[in-house]
Structures are given as C-alpha cells and as structure tokens.
Design a protein around this nucleic acid. Structure first.
Length: 302
DNA sequence: AAGACGAAAGTGGTTGA
DNA sequence: TCAACAACTTTCGTCTT
C-alpha cells in the first residue's frame, strides 16, 4: 500500500479507510464506497496439512469467481522452453497436443462453458448493484452447485444468476430487495422469485427471512446519515418488534420509517421523499409505518 | 413553494378451501 | 384453481411550515 497521505476516500475525502484482506476489498469507513477490489492478498497462505508453513503457491487465494478457481496455468503459443530455446519437433508435437488438451479441459465441456458465461453475468450484475466480493463468491458457489444438480437446463443463465445472487445476498444480509434486483437486471422480479425458490429447495439452503435492521445501514449510507441515526433507527425497530409491530409488514417499509423517525429525532432530518427515493418504499407507506410506530412506542416528533 | 397528510381506488402476492 | 385478504402503491386534493 502507498503512504498514508495518499489513502483518502475518492468520494468523501475521508481518511477512515478500511482494508479487508479476506475480501480483497478497500473501502471507506465513512461513506462505504468500495475503492478497489480483487487485490492480491499479500499474506502467505497458512493452510498446510503437514505442519510445514512454507507457501505452496503465490498469487491470489483460490476463488470461486474464476470458472477454474483461478488455478490454471497457461501454456503459451511460443514453441520455446523456459530458457528461450526452441523446441525440437518431437516436443513441438507434444506441446501442440497439450495445448489442445488444455483448451478442451478448460472450456469444452458444456459445464465449464455455462459456468464461464454465468460468471461474466454475475460480475456484471453484482458490479451494477454494488455488491462486494464475498456475496459474489457465495453466489458463484450456489450457482455451481445448482449447475451440478442440473437445475439450470431449460432456464436462462441470466435468470439463474440473478436468483443465486439474490440468495447469496439474503444469506450474507447485504440488504438488497427484489425491487433492487428488478431495477438492475433484465429478469423480472417474478422470475427471480420463482427461480430462487427452486435453488433454495434443491440445495436445501436455510436462509433467514430479511429483517428490517438489515436495510437500515444501507439506507443510512445512501442518505449520508451519521452513525447515531443508524443506531437510533435500529433501537426503534428493536422496540417495535417487542410490540409485534413488524410482523407481516415489509422489512423495507419498517426500516424506511424507522430511519425517517430517527432522522427527525436528530439534527439530520431527511424528507419522506428522499427516503422513498433511495429505499423504493413509497411516501405513503413510510407515513403509515411511522405513524404506527410513533403511536405505539410513544414517540413525539415536533 | 416544499413537505406532509390522508382518502380512495388499484395492484400483486399469500393463504386456505 | 379460485376467491378472500392484507400490505403496498398510485393518484390527487388539502393542510402546514
């Protein structure tokens, strides 16, 4: 990494930069913007099975984001050996065979071709939605398993990738609703909803249903609200749950209302319109929810 | 003028016969 | 498969700051 002077957030200028080596991500601790991804993990790999701590290989740790998990070695097209000498005809024929074999093994099976196409779409969609590497990895694993179970045949890759990403997002609680997916994917929310259920049951995945708290952090971020507001909003939701005001209500609606109340209780108030815009919940619903919450929790807004 | 309010009608998803 | 149902949205006129 460069000197600390150069490490400033490109968005807000903050120096509160957080580097997550596990996810290969550098992000701003204040506004949450991800500044770079897919960095090479500078640490050596510690996993060794014989107690010997020597590095087995260098480069990035293995990742499910490459269809061959990033471990393939390229056989180049020059008929030279490592020292640059030309190869004899015998070796040349052998090299030719190896290259052909390599091409086959890497992409010729329909499985690998599908996986490759899926990963391209996965990274496109995840990038567009601002989803980090851990979610992408999780989605890639789910997709791979779905592909192994032959769930993809007859359905579009685009559709199933969106479904896998949606599931991964739920599992890792990264707060993206079906509406968010519909906004960024060409696949309809209906199709994503249907496919994600198929994957979920076939892979026997247990994913907790979304809770309002999960959305608070993201909303607060998008609204550039300080952390106290976030904390306040989570407190409100906590109390609301104890009074059973959250059951059967959409988590986004509850979260949006809680953020609205919290923002009004502090100096950094946001309008219903602003919150509606970033959350995808209408002003009317925010109103209904926040009236409910204020009434039952005895919160007074001036 | 902007924001908040609430009534009324419409939409899409869930549930249970 | 269908109807009933609650939550949510859309639209719009009115009130408040």
């Amino acid at each position: 990494m460069v000197g600390s002077d150069a490490v400033k957030c490109s968005e807000c200028g903050s120096r509160n930069i957080h580097r997550d080596l596990n996810r290969g991500e550098t992000s701003c601790g204040d506004c949450g913007v991800v500044m770079s991804e897919s960095e090479i993990d500078p640490r050596s790999e510690w996993s060794s099975f014989d107690g010997d701590t020597s590095k087995v290989r260098t480069g990035m740790p293995t990742s499910f984001l490459f269809h061959d998990k990033g471990l393939s070695t390229d056989i180049d097209h020059l008929n030279k050996d490592y020292s640059g000498r030309s190869l004899g005809s015998k070796q040349r024929i052998q090299m030719h065979r190896m290259r052909k074999w390599q091409r086959r093994s890497r992409t010729s099976s329909s499985f690998e071709r599908n996986m490759e196409a899926a990963l391209v779409e996965l990274s496109r969609l995840a990038g567009k939605m601002g989803l980090g590497k851990s979610v992408r990895e999780e989605a890639a694993i789910m997709y791979r398993r779905a592909l192994e179970k032959d769930l993809i045949r007859g359905r579009s890759i685009e559709n199933m990738v969106a479904a896998a990403l949606y599931l991964a997002n739920q599992k890792l609680k990264t707060a993206r609703s079906l509406d968010d997916f519909e906004r960024h994917s060409r696949v309809s929310r209906k199709a994503i909803a249907r496919s994600h259920k198929i994957i979920k049951s076939a892979l026997k995945l247990r994913v907790e249903i979304a809770q309002p708290e999960q959305y608070v952090g993201r909303y607060a971020n998008l609204l550039e609200l300080p952390f106290i507001v976030e904390k306040e909003a989570i407190g409100i939701i906590d109390r609301a749950r104890k009074r059973d005001l959250t059951h059967g209500k959409s988590p986004t609606g509850v979260a949006a209302a809680a953020v609205y109340i919290a923002s009004r209780l502090t100096e950094s108030m946001r309008t219903q319109r602003e919150i509606a815009d970033i959350s995808g919940v209408t002003e009317v619903t925010i109103r209904n929810r926040y009236k409910e919450l204020c009434g039952d929790l005895g919160i007074e807004l001036d």
